[in-house]
Design a protein around this nucleic acid. Structure first.
Lengths: 342, 342
DNA sequence: CTGAAAGCGCTTACAG
DNA sequence: CTGAAAGCGCTTACAG
């Protein structure tokens, strides 16, 4: 195939490169006949302006980066997958491309440099991060440098218009979960905490404490375990709680459903039945939650709308629109079979 | 922040832009001290060469496009999600980025133009397509134009080195599935076909027919239904088979697990029990298959290795390595509870 | 080992 | 309405 460029098109259409460019960029000051003529040649010669030349001349890339920080096997986690594809789909519907990047360990040698490079190279117009710890200095750095960044599950700790954050109302949602247990007459309620370096981890713990205090219930040190958002932490945390306690709690609030899965496994191994011996409630409404035995009661979370809003806001921000501060998004109680009245 | 470019770096390091470029590209003909000096300045000034200038000067983009053709809600399908993230992870491990694109309907107005644009723009060095029908003319077009393209579930119908395809051994795998039913003494075996425009759809039907013929079993017209790889097709196909047949089959071979899910739902509604009344076997080993009631017997498929190989091959091909023709990948029988001996 | 210069292919003020 | 020209920021033969 012969190389074709705007000069070539210009020659064939009998106009200047300037005019070709004006047609491509759909400027208004081109008479219909000229436009027609140029478009004809462009079509006939299967011509597409080279992105990189356009960007060098000052155009945007039409791309955002989605940076997934996760040391697990992402492709095996349905929630991660869901977040990823939602960003992709949302961006696509806004005419944007998503460059997807996986970071195993953000503290590893090349990791931060790689992320810096993506932005400084001008590979993208902005970015979305998933799975970043609070107070990650790299985020602050990129924000200071003026890059547009959207985060899910992150506290807005810098007052900059180019830092966009979206979160669920984790405090309130967790309170509702715990109060559901309380309504079922539970008083001895343990918590399996999530990753406390995450906004959601912190806030869900807060919500638990709030609800307990509000109802005058005691929070015992040895009824607090876990510490991460996966089933392993739930499993180990549960064993720890059950084995260390002189008296066993009647209910467990798990900081997310994966944690609850681990907890249910541990309880099963220890011969404790859910919900007969212990009630359990999670957060997220994981794909597998309705399939648990018993089906898991949980707080449903709308990842769908959240990631779409985040993506759209990043794109709007790229296009210099003003973004209004997002509100926290509510969760919804989904009652299934894992909690019983006592 | 002040604009920094290679000329600036050159000035600061007291060398020419040529030398800066040589250092960046790690050429061997630069004395250590010079290299040191230049790298120092690069680091101090937080300088990253602009991608677009590099590409314009002839460098590769280090990016492949992943084009997902799917009219459903991708983010809700765990298999699609899995394929996507596997490509992303594999590419990342090879130092490549993945530009992810979703195409709802490849026959829609702008769809093909958009795909053409991505390649002609030089946005990427190559691409991977998922969910493309056999004989899709766009693929042939792009191959002819010399773009490097990898496909999963596609028959290699053009003998071009830049067309890379990977497939499971669908014929043999399906035969094994059907023979599993035959070993359990089933003779009346229906099939719920998949999408017959896909390599896997065609081949799985072939495998069914082969096994039936080999064992001298009759294939009845009204025991063939379905026609797509989703639970809806399985549901409707099953109703059709059961309602149209004067005699009911004792077993069903479903072209994939989603189809089997739909079939089980339909059977349940019609008061037929699995496996007491009808045995059923699927293909894929879907995430939800072990959770069905009864747990679904199926042919496990290694999407993981497959997508990784495909991704690596595309990248190798971009780097002018010769790719050996991939063999078909085997499937593995996973016996659960949905088939019984009669 | 190293620099000057050409080339990559666009866009956009500027001037008319 | 339209063209000539500058500018974007690299890389790479070429010559020394």
């Amino acid at each position: 195939m012969t190389k074709i460029n705007s000069a070539e098109i210009a020659k064939l259409a009998g106009v200047s490169r300037s005019t070709v460019s004006r047609v491509i960029n759909n400027y208004h000051n081109v008479p219909p006949e000229t436009k027609e003529k140029v478009l004809r040649v462009i079509k006939d010669y299967n011509y597409y302006p080279k992105l990189h030349a356009q960007v060098m001349a000052g155009k945007k890339t039409g791309t955002i980066v989605l940076c997934i920080v996760d040391d697990g096997n992402i492709s095996n986690d349905s929630t991660s997958n869901f977040l990823i594809t939602r960003v992709i789909e949302s961006a696509a519907s806004a005419g944007y491309y998503v460059l997807t990047v996986v970071i195993r360990d953000i503290n590893e040698a090349g990791a931060k440099t790689q992320i810096r490079e993506i932005f400084h190279q001008k590979r993208v117009d902005g970015g979305i991060f998933i799975g970043v710890d609070l107070q990650e200095p790299l985020i602050a750095e990129l924000i200071t440098e003026g890059f547009i960044i959207g985060l899910f599950d992150y506290e807005k700790n810098i007052d900059a218009p180019n830092l966009l954050t979206y979160n669920f109302d984790d405090v309130n949602g967790s309170s509702v979960a715990v109060e559901h247990l309380i309504e079922l007459n539970h008083k001895d309620i343990a918590i399996l905490t999530g990753n406390m370096k995450r906004f959601s981890g912190m806030k869900r713990f807060e919500g638990y404490k709030e609800a307990m205090k509000k109802h005058g219930l005691q929070i015992r040190e040895n009824w607090i375990a876990g510490g991460d958002f996966n089933s392993k932490a739930g499993y180990e945390g549960t064993k720890q709680i059950i084995q260390s306690a002189t008296n066993i709690p009647t209910a467990i609030f798990a900081s997310n459903d994966s944690v609850a899965f681990g907890a249910m496994k541990a309880l099963g191994e220890m011969g404790l039945k859910v919900p007969e011996d212990i009630s359990i409630i999670g957060v997220d409404d994981h794909l597998l939650s309705p399939f648990q035995k018993p089906a898991l009661t949980t707080m449903r979370v709308d990842f769908n709308t959240m990631m779409q809003n985040l993506t759209f806001d990043v794109i709007r921000s790229i296009n210099d629109e003003t973004i209004e501060e997002p509100k926290l998004t509510n969760m919804e109680l989904v009652v299934r079979e894992s909690c019983r009245k006592i």
